[in-house]
């Protein structure tokens, strides 16, 4: 019935992912969703994995086929992160050769079989409380990956923020009817946006740092991190007045080394930009 499926290729060139179907023991037309748990086996150990860490693809001593249980959204290495995305393209009972291309042109190749889908949940059907728990997990994983794999941390924070937004407006959520209070969801959202600001600063996407830290202007006591990151973004956008006003949201900012350094940088650049402006005016009207 699914003969046409054998040899079928799926690709995501941007991520360097590819999958080719080798065999299929068809039982039902089901694939794992991003919120699911599965059992899969590694049929052929990976080629070219090198020193890249993976919870699942590390070769066992005797080379035996390994059966693994996996819950999506728990990866903390890039290989396992992409392994999850590949598995989401598997039909139940499918054996496929998978590959992950690297920046240096290495092709990491391995063969997997999706043995079971133990749970499969449509994300739009999760309750607000379930969405909160999932977003919190994504945030935690993002924090774990931030130092070594900032791009993947960024992705986790983005996914977490998006999940929470599906229950906006938060002020309508109550513990009694949604299992979680809107204020708790809002607090997590603000933490995630603060983490996003760190990622976006690394990417030099300063306008988007401003977007994600808008709460700094309205929250009563925004965190120092969020204030600092917003001010840095204003500084890079040459909005020196706004940068200075932002750091002043922290009452004792002058006692903090990072803030003082930023204040000095703002002052110097501000002065220079004034001097620059004056020289332009002088040239134009002299």
């Amino acid at each position: 019935m699914m003969e046409w499926y054998i040899g079928n290729v799926w690709q995501d060139k941007t991520k360097g992912l590819s999958k080719k179907v080798m065999t299929l023991q068809f039982s039902s037309l089901d694939k794992p969703l991003p919120v699911s748990s599965v059992e899969f086996s590694v049929k052929k150990a990976p080629l070219n994995l090198g020193a890249r860490p993976s919870k699942y693809l590390a070769v066992s001593g005797d080379g035996a086929q390994q059966l693994h249980s996996l819950t999506m959204g728990n990866a903390t290495t890039p290989i396992d992160f992409y392994l999850e995305l590949l598995l989401q393209q598997f039909l139940l009972g499918e054996t496929s050769t998978c590959s992950i291309e690297t920046k240096t042109g290495d092709i990491i190749e391995f063969q997997l079989k999706l043995e079971r889908i133990t749970s499969n949940q449509q994300v739009e059907k999760l309750t607000a409380a379930e969405i909160y728990d999932l977003a919190l997990r994504y945030k935690t994983n993002g924090v774990a990956m931030f130092k070594d794999y900032p791009k993947f941390a960024f992705d986790y924070f983005i996914q977490a923020a998006k999940l929470l937004i599906t229950y906006k407006p938060f002020d309508k959520l109550t513990k009694a009817s949604n299992g979680i209070d809107g204020s708790e969801v809002e607090a997590l959202f603000v933490q995630i946006q603060t983490n996003l600001a760190a990622c976006l600063l690394q990417e030099k996407r300063y306008e988007h740092v401003i977007y994600h830290t808008d709460f700094v202007d309205t929250l009563e006591n925004p965190s120092e991190k969020s204030v600092y990151r917003r001010a840095v973004a204003f500084y890079h956008l040459k909005e020196f007045e706004k940068a200075q006003r932002t750091i002043e949201r922290v009452p004792n900012y002058e006692e903090k080394r990072e803030f003082c350094k930023l204040r000095d940088n703002i002052a110097t650049s501000w002065k220079n930009s004034d001097a620059h402006y004056k020289s332009v005016v002088q040239r134009m009207f002299s």
Binding site: K15, P78, Y82
Partner: peptide, 13 residues
């Protein structure tokens, strides 16, 4: 859908 939520992990190292 706002562009501030755009993110691409791309090729791995």
């Amino acid at each position: 859908g706002h562009e501030a939520y755009d993110c691409e992990t791309g090729l791995i190292d």
